[in-house]
Computed example of a mutant assay.
Amino acid sequence: MPQQEPAVQADSWKSAVSDLFGGGWTFAQVGPRRHDDWRRDVAAVMGLKTTDPRGWSSVNYAPEVGENRSGTNSPFFSWSSEEIDRSLHEIGMRSAGQLLVALKGDSYQAANIPDFDQQRDRLCRSSRVILSRFSTHSRFFTNAADAHRNPDADLLNPDTEWDCLSVYTTDCGLVAVSDTEIGVFWAFWED
Results as ranks from 00 to 15, higher is better:
L174M: 08
F76T: 01
S127Q: 08
R69T: 07
P6H: 10
V129C: 06
W189H: 14
I91F: 00
D11Y: 06
D154V: 02
D159H: 11
H89Y: 15
S132K: 07
F188S: 03
A111F: 10
S78H: 13
V167Y: 01
D121G: 02
S126D: 10
Q4C: 01
H89A: 07
G66S: 10
W79F: 14
D37E: 12
S78Q: 15
G92L: 01
M1C: 07
Y168W: 11
F140S: 02
E67Y: 14
P114Y: 06
A144M: 13
S95E: 01
A187L: 01
W189A: 11
S81F: 03
P158Y: 05
T180E: 13
W162C: 04
V101A: 08
A10R: 15
V65S: 11
A62Q: 05
L165D: 03
V177H: 12
A102C: 05
R39G: 00
G24W: 02
L174W: 03
G55W: 14
L131P: 09
S107G: 05
N68A: 01
R125Q: 14
R34F: 03
P2S: 13
S126Q: 11
S74G: 10
F116V: 05
P53M: 10
S58Y: 14
R39K: 12
I130Y: 12
V30Y: 15
D52Y: 05
F76N: 02
G22D: 09
P158E: 04
D121F: 07
L155Q: 03
D179P: 02
S135K: 09
T136M: 10
S132N: 14
E181A: 11
F185C: 05
G173Q: 09
N73W: 12
L156R: 09
S166L: 04
V42R: 06
W25S: 09
E64S: 10
R40Y: 09
V129W: 05
D146H: 04
C164S: 11
D191P: 12
S87W: 01
E190I: 04
T142A: 05
R69N: 08
D36G: 13
I113C: 02
N60D: 15
F140A: 03
L20A: 08
A44R: 12
S178P: 05
D85A: 14
D179I: 02
W56F: 13
S58G: 15
Q3P: 10
H89V: 02
A145N: 09
G23S: 15
R40L: 13
F77S: 09
Q9M: 12
P114V: 04
W25F: 14
V167R: 13
V30R: 15
I91G: 00
V42H: 08
S18E: 15
P2Q: 12
S58P: 01
G23W: 10
R94V: 08
G47Y: 02
G47I: 05
F140K: 00
R94I: 08
Q9H: 15
F185S: 06
N73V: 11
T72P: 06
F134E: 08
P158V: 03
